[in-house]
Computed example of a mutant assay.
Amino acid sequence: MQGGLRGRGAASNRGGRYLQATREADAEQLEQQRLQEGVPERVATVVQVVRSRQIISQNQSPDIPFHQSINPYQGCEHGCIYCYARPSHAWHDLSPGLDFETRLFAKPDAADLLRKELAKPGYQASPIMLGANTDPYQPIDRQWQITRQLLQVLLDCRHPVGIITKSALIERDLDLLQALAAQGLIQTYLSVTTLDAELARRLEPRAATPLRRLQAVQALHRAGVSVGVLVAPIIPALTDAGVFSVLQAAAEAGAGSASYVILRLPLEIRDLFVEWLKQHYPQRAEHVMSVLQQMRGGQDYQSAYGERMKGRGPYADMLRRQFALHCRRLGLARRSLDVRCDLFQPPSPANGQLSLF
């Protein structure tokens, strides 16, 4: 891979917006040190346990089809350079750059917290999305298995759930997913940005290859688990030409729905992405940003609901029409999070005794 650290998406550790002071390493000096001392071009992943008071997050965004989500991890080892969750690491006084993909937080008590929250009087079941912020099946879940523990609680309580991932590790939990699917309680989504393996390796260095994700789509479909594909994000002048090939491959693998999101560059992501773009695709950098700005009212990003996901203007309108046309042709007409909410059974108290009050 040209430039950057091997196996990592961000090329730097730019400071977050809340830091009062920032430090930047001299790239030339670091390179000389590496050559002289043989310092490997790698940064190890460090996982820290975090104890939360609650595990279900709420949102009221009108352009998101769910109001509840759970993120078993903060930060994501996949290292996708475009990840909209990167700015959240600034809340920990960490960089949305390399820190986001190397200094991770795990919530091992997530399943216990979930039981307590589902048992609260008056709780009303509505779909909980796993992976709304960071991937619930990122590589560290092989060891921690927090996502599987959450799924077991949701199955025990017959609670509706959705999953968004770009990892084939989801196949590990096929037994639980099948049991949820048999009751109409689950919808899964695989994110497939491009079929170009080299481009994907640079964009999403530690995620499963595009082919492996499509194989996971096929495995879920064959197991009777409802599965859709998210072509997200679409990056103009970089991944847009391959969008309809992704849809074709998704339909052949058994996906039943598809949606897309245009590249979003809020807060620190803008500088990180431009840095990555100039490093990996310098000849395209200016064109990519120019087309993106055409969809963002001349800016790099606009956060208005309804526009932040799809953009506006002639290019965005053309993409919207063509995407819808191909989805209809391939049987991938978009559906909302269609799961049952009427089967929910609150968990019993841990001691097995019911409360009198």
Rank of each mutant, 00 (worst) to 15 (best):
A250W: 02
V288N: 01
Y315C: 03
S257P: 01
S303F: 08
E252H: 12
P266C: 06
A324D: 13
R320G: 02
L330I: 03
Q345F: 02
I234S: 05
H287N: 13
S303A: 15
M309W: 11
L337C: 08
A316R: 02
Y305D: 13
A250Y: 00
R264G: 10
H280G: 01
P314W: 08
A316M: 06
L325I: 07
D338Y: 00
P349I: 03
S336R: 14
M318W: 15
A316H: 07
Y281T: 01
P349M: 07
F344A: 06
R335F: 03
A258D: 01
A333E: 15
P349A: 12
D240S: 13
L277N: 09
R308M: 15
L247Q: 09
S336H: 12
R270V: 04
L263A: 09
L247W: 04
R340W: 05
L267V: 01
P236K: 01
V288S: 07
C341M: 12
R320K: 14
R321F: 02
L238G: 10
Q283R: 13
S257M: 08
G311I: 03
P233G: 05
Q322P: 05
Q283P: 01
G242N: 10
D271K: 12
S303K: 15
I269G: 00
L325M: 09
S348K: 11
Q294G: 11
I235A: 03
Q322D: 13
A253E: 04
K310E: 04
P314L: 07
Q294W: 06
A241H: 14
H326K: 14
F244T: 03
P346A: 15
D271P: 02
Q279P: 00
L330C: 06
P347F: 01
L292M: 07
Q345W: 01
D317K: 13
Y315R: 10
L337K: 05
P349K: 05
A232G: 11
R334F: 10
S245W: 06
L319M: 14
L292Y: 06
R334C: 00
W276P: 02
F344H: 07
E275G: 11
